[in-house]
Simulated assay, not measured.
Amino acid sequence: MTPTNAATQPKPTVLFVCVHNAGRSQMAAGYLQALAGDRIQVLSAGSAPKDTINTVAVAAMLEEGIDIATNTPKILTDEAVQDSDVVITMGCGDACKFYPGKRYEDWQLDDPAGQGIEAVRPIRDDIRARVEALIADIAPAA
C-alpha cells in the first residue's frame, strides 16, 4: 500500500453562481482563493452576467485585503457545473444548472447590487463565514 498525501489527491473544484456574477459569487470566489490557496480550484459564473464587477463589492473586499477588481463576470455553462465537485448557488433561481452527483448548496444572501458599502459589509462577512466553513469541510488544513 502506498501512502496518500495532499499533493497526490485531486483538489476539489467549487463553483459559485449568482445571477450577475458581479457581487456575491465574486466575493465568495475571492475569499475561497485567498483562504484556501491552491487546495481548492475556484470557479464563478452567472446566469445573466453583468459587464463588470460591482464596484461596492470590490471596495468591500479591498477592506479585507482581497482585490477582485480585475475579475470578469462569466456566463454559467454546463461544462463549469460538470467540472465542479461543489456548486454553491446564490439566488440564481431556475437558471442554475443541476446535475446528479454534485454537492449543491444554496446560500440565501442579500444581493449587493445597488447597495452602499454599509449594506454590503454584512453580506461580505456572511460570505466569509460560509467560505471558512466550506474550506473546513472539503479541504481542511493538514
Score class of each variant (00 low, 15 high):
126 D>C: 00
105 E>F: 11
84 S>A: 15
123 I>G: 10
73 P>T: 08
23 G>E: 08
101 G>K: 02
24 R>E: 13
35 L>Q: 09
136 A>V: 07
129 A>F: 00
137 D>E: 15
46 G>V: 07
86 V>G: 06
114 G>A: 06
43 L>P: 03
136 A>S: 15
76 L>D: 13
65 G>V: 11
109 L>Y: 06
63 E>N: 11
34 A>N: 13
131 V>T: 13
17 V>G: 12
10 P>Y: 09
20 H>I: 10
83 D>N: 14
70 T>K: 09
59 A>W: 02
117 I>H: 09
33 Q>N: 12
67 D>C: 07
114 G>K: 05
76 L>F: 08
96 C>L: 03
72 T>M: 01
37 G>F: 03
140 P>V: 09
5 N>A: 06
55 T>D: 13
112 P>Y: 09
5 N>R: 03
5 N>Y: 06
110 D>H: 09
13 T>R: 08
6 A>E: 15
114 G>M: 05
100 P>E: 13
68 I>H: 06
130 R>E: 13
12 P>L: 00
74 K>D: 14
27 M>L: 05
88 I>R: 05
14 V>M: 07
140 P>A: 07
63 E>R: 08
142 A>R: 11
34 A>P: 06
49 P>N: 05
127 I>L: 02
46 G>F: 01
21 N>C: 07
47 S>R: 04
137 D>M: 01
28 A>W: 01
119 A>M: 06
59 A>D: 14
86 V>A: 04
9 Q>K: 12
62 L>I: 08
36 A>C: 11
125 D>H: 01
99 Y>M: 14
37 G>H: 06
48 A>L: 07
25 S>F: 00
37 G>V: 11
126 D>M: 02
74 K>H: 14
15 L>R: 03
90 M>H: 11
21 N>S: 12
108 Q>H: 14
123 I>T: 13
22 A>Q: 06
70 T>V: 11
82 Q>M: 08
8 T>N: 13
73 P>N: 03
59 A>H: 08
84 S>E: 09
125 D>W: 00
39 R>I: 12
66 I>H: 07
101 G>C: 05
102 K>S: 14
75 I>E: 15
16 F>G: 05
74 K>R: 14
120 V>E: 07
29 A>C: 04
100 P>W: 00
135 I>W: 05
69 A>M: 07
48 A>T: 13
9 Q>C: 01
84 S>L: 01
50 K>E: 15
14 V>S: 10
1 M>Q: 15
82 Q>F: 04
114 G>L: 01
137 D>H: 02
131 V>G: 04
79 E>R: 10
38 D>R: 09
110 D>V: 07
61 M>P: 09
63 E>M: 04
132 E>Y: 01
128 R>C: 08
39 R>G: 09
135 I>T: 14
106 D>M: 00
99 Y>K: 14
5 N>P: 00
32 L>M: 13
119 A>L: 03
64 E>F: 00
108 Q>P: 03
39 R>E: 15
8 T>Y: 01
37 G>Y: 06
29 A>N: 10
122 P>C: 10
69 A>V: 09
38 D>C: 00
105 E>D: 15
45 A>K: 02
